[in-house]
Design a protein around this nucleic acid. Structure first.
Length: 511
RNA sequence: CGGGAAGUAGCUCAGUCUGGUAGAGUACUGCGUUCGGGACGCAGGGGCCGGAGGUUCGAAUCCUCUCUUCCCGACCA
């Protein structure tokens, strides 16, 4: 009978299921420090793949990596009011540089070691990088400046969730400065497109790319764009953002250059980022009731070989057979890279190893026992299609010589299958054509579990009017996600105000 | 940061109300029988009961403070 590897199903308790996947797949665990997680090898391995493949794209679009300091002088933030307002409440601040023995023998902060100027642990690097840009940019010939850094940042969030919102997280932040507004806007949209393509093709996670309304903008930005992914519970996850910063930061930080006419001009800047949050998105997009399903492109190991060892003399032969098999598979290339294969030589029981790789979500699991060895076969489990219709594990016994050359195509097939499944789910859960607010209320009635999103027409309200619309959405626990870049033009009336509509916007519940 | 719940063996938890010095399942170690859907039997090892104070002859248990986690809000990638 069918028995799932996890005890909590997505249907019963999505939040509990999410945590169980992370624990059972050995991806991450609590560290004992509020909101700070330990990323274990399987989780970090996925992040390394994300880094590697994203880094290629960042460099291919003309950016160079560099590294800025973790500590930012407090005064740097004072230069841009809106920016500091946005982050003030969540900044970790270093005020002292020494400890000493306290009266009770324990260590206390030495009051004599107070810093002249407190240092902020970076929540994002616009301020330091902008300060450097101001030095680097003197002439129109110095532009554009296009850099990226891979770093950790700290935001003291009140409520944390593994991968989705941790106090410290890992990310990449791109920062660019340009001579013209048009060029900076082009850069902003090019980063957005890079994220969209990456999410779809690498993470197999479908997204909607679009512009955020005014109230959802990055603090200090003139425009913010995002990619929004739909989780299996119908909620939205903002999986990447790209900001057009206009001249706000260049004016605050004096990023100025002389143009060809010798006139001083302020540069136009952009910033864009993606983080370890994407891994949370991958879990909630592809995970199932047996654990994680990792898309082959980001799987630390794409093929895992589980030798069936029995503490008997023939174990050595089985192991040798597996190692030779791994060697053959490692010679193959999939997605233009060598296939990543691992032989699980640990002494654990076969069943334990099998289920552990199922829960981790290795795309292809090969079980090799004496019988396979004798017949020159492999027993293959495809993680994205675990079960037969009967509910039995769908283990396929295949001739080794015929199977090996098929591996690259198989991995590619799994990548596509995961993407297609997620794509269909998202497309089926974005409802268009709703015209009345009462229909919105009905659509998001409390009893509906996974309602998904609505694409509605609206008047692109700003200021106070936008605030009151926000309040109405909030009552239904809804937020604006974004205005899809490829949405149709508006041709109706605003669902909130009845005024002529300006654009189409996505609304939904969000993480 | 407000409201709720919880922290006891690696993990999941019982024991706390009614104070008397530590339990189960699972995992782990050894031996034996098994083995292609998470095997079984026997024998073992493992805990400063989250931390600090207090009450008491005696505290996992009662009191105070604190840290961490989870859920619901507010805030946010």
């Amino acid at each position: 009978m069918k028995k799932n590897a996890l005890t909590i199903t997505r249907e019963d308790d999505f939040a509990g299921w999410y945590q169980q996947v992370i624990a059972e797949a050995d991806m991450a665990e609590e560290s004992g420090v509020r909101g700070s997680m330990i990323m274990r090898p399987w989780g970090y391995g996925i992040w390394e793949r994300v880094q590697y493949l994203m880094d290629q794209r960042i460099k291919a679009t003309g950016h160079e990596n560099c590294y800025f300091p973790l500590f930012i002088p407090l005064s740097y933030f004072a230069k841009e009011a809106e920016h500091v307002d946005g982050f003030a409440k969540e900044m970790a601040v270093v005020t002292h540089h020494r400890l000493k023995k306290g009266p009770d023998g324990g260590l206390i902060v030495d009051p004599d070691a107070k810093l002249e100027e407190p240092l902020v642990v970076r929540p994002t690097s616009e301020t330091v990088i902008g300060t450097a840009f101001a030095r680097w940019v003197q002439s129109w010939r110095d532009l554009p400046v296009m850099i990226n850094q891979w770093a950790n940042v700290v935001r003291w969030e009140m409520r944390t969730r593994m991968f989705l919102r941790t106090t410290e997280f890992l990310w990449q932040e791109g920062h660019t400065a340009h001579a013209t507004k048009a060029e900076a806007m082009e850069e902003t949209l090019s980063a957005l497109e890079m994220y969209r393509e990456f999410s779809e093709n690498v993470l197999a996670m479908p997204v909607i790319a679009g512009e955020k309304p005014e109230n959802e903008r990055f603090p200090g930005a003139d425009a913010t764009y995002s990619i929004e992914a739909m989780m299996q519970d119908g909620k939205a996850l903002q999986a990447g953002t790209s900001h057009f910063l206009g001249q706000t930061f260049s004016k605050a930080q004096n990023i100025r250059f002389q143009d060809k006419e010798g006139e001083f001009q302020f540069a136009y800047t952009t910033s864009w980022g993606t983080s370890t949050r994407m891994i949370g998105g991958v879990i909630m997009t592809h995970g199932d009731d047996d654990g994680m399903r990792v898309p082959p492109l980001i799987a630390p190991y794409q093929v895992v070989i589980v030798p069936m060892l029995r503490d008997k003399p023939e174990d050595k032969e089985v192991l040798d057979y597996c190692k030779a098999l791994a060697k053959d598979i490692a010679k193959l290339r999939a997605f233009d890279e060598p296939v990543r294969v691992k032989v699980d030589i640990t002494g654990a029981k076969t069943q334990t190893k099998r289920w552990s790789w199922i829960k981790k979500g290795a795309p292809v699991i090969l079980e090799i026992g004496p019988r396979d060895m004798a017949d020159d076969k492999v027993a293959m489990i495809r993680r994205d299609a675990l079960y037969q219709d009967s509910g039995k594990l769908d283990t396929k016994f295949l001739a080794k010589a015929e199977f090996i050359p098929e591996i690259p195509a198989l991995l590619s097939d799994i990548q596509t299958a995961l993407h297609t499944e997620a794509r269909e789910r998202m497309d089926g859960n974005v409802k268009k054509g709703v015209e009345y607010w009462s229909d919105v209320e009905r659509f998001y009635a409390p009893k509906k579990k996974h309602p998904g999103w609505l694409e509605v027409q609206w008047c692109k309200a700003t200021g106070e009017e936008l605030k009151s619309i926000e309040e109405r959405l909030k009552k239904l626990k809804l937020t604006f996600r974004n205005v899809p870049v490829d949405a149709d033009a508006a041709d109706g009336t605003c669902i909130f105000t009845g005024k002529p509509a300006v654009e189409r916007i996505i609304i939904g519940k969000a993480y």
